[in-house]
Design a protein around this nucleic acid. Structure first.
Lengths: 343, 343
DNA sequence: ACCGAGTACGAAAGCGCTTCCGAAAGCGCT
DNA sequence: AGCGCTTTCGGAAGCGCTTTCGTACTCGGT
């Protein structure tokens, strides 16, 4: 068994095949200008010797790097870990490597990580996770990414319509509307929204959907309590405490992601408030544990794993004249956490 | 605003700082042979210009590669996503990049990914996830990894005592024993184990702990039903169905990880079997949702995020003469899924 | 004032690869 | 036979960095 790795260089292969370094390089990278016959011989020899190109040398010399950079808010958040799973899956099939960084929902941290990835010369960048409502916050990110694309980098984003790049767009607004319809259909009129920080577009989009549903039924969205706390489990707990104190008439809570919904359920459990008996609760995303909560959570299913695959798939295609957009679709999954409004 | 990335080279920084390329390199990498004064100036200028070294050039020129390869079974499994979170966290602090691959609990796939990482010349490899009980399955992996270390690569593993490398070892056996003690203390005598496939050392170790607890109390571990199914949620469901059919006297189920425990709870719920009224259930790992299940899950807490950090930390130190081992410790977390044996 | 040791820095040689450029060879024409 | 054209290949110039080696300079000791 020929051992690959350190010490085996392209020039060794070239010599053994009786050709020059240049020819060997062309043969292996499939450039033309080499006769089929010679190219075959080189490939053959390279295989026999177990040659693997040094990616550092290759990239340095001008070839494109074969690694994809993935930026997520937090990989141990199920929403992102499922997306990452999809990206890694497809990347594995294409034998690409995936570099993951955390942005921690912090625009400046995100910017740093992007700069880092670009400096590392990754050929593909995938940015997952909500954008920021304030255009100023994103303007620098946008210009950095535009520079990256202009320099030949491929970019795909998940859930950020504000960037002019190939995008996978979760059905946030339509999903929000479906949740609203569902609760209104069950008779709820005093609905509170447990939202993440208002600067996330994911939050504003989903809220817009809920509001649309309410207007469609002659209800006034402006009268609906909206609590902006952190877009994580703990935020759900905090918001719930405030709802119980300040809006005691509430019969249904819409949490804008499943993590927050879990916090909501946990707080309600502590207060011994029956779900859905006295309070209905819905989430958004359908992370894999949503079905195992107590009670199991009514939520909007987003195909996270596929979203990851789709994003990488877009990035692997050559760039289109206009940015491509892929909507994900969504599905209302009704489980045990919602019921008719209490009598 | 200085734009970083492409086009900005060390020599630009050097010129701006009025020093030679060599000096700039030394200053930035903290080599000595440069006066403090000059080094400071170079660092200052480099910061101002937003310079980031090209890792390809750096690695090619002989510096160590600054990326770490992380192999997990599946990143969208909470156990691994939390470990990955820890690795990425620490890597971010050290401005290292993390490349993640899936092994999918498949030894040959794992081997492929390792070869791939090695060919990419990553400087550090972290292998997370259970090893395989059958030494033959791991022998090739072992030899590949030994070659990697001999060539100067740094390796750390999480939960694989069979590899002679720096290791973070979860307290599997002691945790298993603690679970056994807990249930026995509650009066349970008819305990069934819902185990993953027997070829995973994680499974055998945790089982050994449970058996030890039983023997310590004069019970015969051999009489205890052990169901080997897939080490995931669905395996827990399948195993539970069989327990209910074949071992109706069972009053407590030990699932060897939380994912399986979730499957167990789900199956019990379908059968309307009250937990812990008629059946106590425990898990292992304490993934973050364990507290939010219904009922909340009694389990063994493993510090997954820290385990990721510790592994990378070990790998960042220079190799020791003998492999280092770090035990993780564990903690029994008693929640609502366990109670006294039914009368 | 001179010497050896030490310190601070610059010049230049690669690391392994891709790619530009030019040479050589083969071809159909006139 | 001579011309231009294409095809196939080798020579060599980098890519941006680290590191070895050499040079200039300083300093305490004689």
């Amino acid at each position: 068994m020929p051992k690959p790795g350190p010490g085996l260089r392209l020039i060794d292969v070239a010599q053994r095949a009786g050709v020059s370094l240049a020819t060997a390089s062309r043969a292996l990278s499939g450039r033309d200008g080499v006769s089929e016959e010679v190219a075959d011989r080189v490939r053959q020899v390279s295989l026999e010797m177990g040659y693997v190109a040094n990616p550092y040398a290759r990239t340095l010399a001008g070839g494109a790097s074969s690694t994809v950079g993935l930026v997520v808010h937090q990989v141990d958040d199920p929403y992102f870990s499922e997306i990452a799973g999809g990206v890694i899956q497809l990347a594995g099939e294409q034998s690409l490597l995936v570099q993951i960084c955390h942005s921690g929902r912090d625009p400046s941290q995100e910017l740093r990580q992007l700069r880092n990835l670009i400096a590392q010369r990754v050929g593909i960048i995938i940015v997952a996770g909500s954008g920021y409502s304030d255009p100023r916050v994103e303007s620098e990110t946008r210009s950095v990414l535009e520079g990256y694309e202009r320099a030949g980098g491929r970019l795909a984003v998940i859930g950020r319509h504000s960037l002019a790049a190939d995008a996978v767009l979760p059905d946030n607004e339509a999903g929000g509307r479906a949740l609203g319809e569902h609760l209104i259909g069950l008779g709820h009129r005093n609905i509170a929204i447990v939202a993440g920080t208002a600067e996330l577009t994911t939050v504003t989009d989903r809220m817009a959907g809920v509001a649309a549903a309410m207007r469609a039924h002659g209800l006034d969205p402006a009268a609906m309590p909206v609590l902006h706390t952190d877009f994580i489990r703990e935020g759900g707990r905090v918001a719930t405490e405030r709802i119980l104190r300040e809006h005691p008439g509430t019969t249904a809570i819409i949490a804008l992601n499943d993590a927050m919904a879990m916090g909501v359920l946990s707080a309600l459990r502590e207060h011994r408030i029956s779900v859905p008996g006295r309070m209905s609760v819905v989430g958004f995303d359908d992370v894999s544990v949503a079905a195992d909560l107590a009670p199991s959570l009514t939520t909007i299913r987003l195909p996270m794993t596929d979203m990851g695959r789709m994003a990488l798939d877009l990035a692997l295609k050559p760039p289109a004249a206009r940015p491509r957009r892929r909507r994900t679709g969504h599905q209302l999954v009704v489980r045990d956490s919602t019921g008719p409004v209490p009598a």
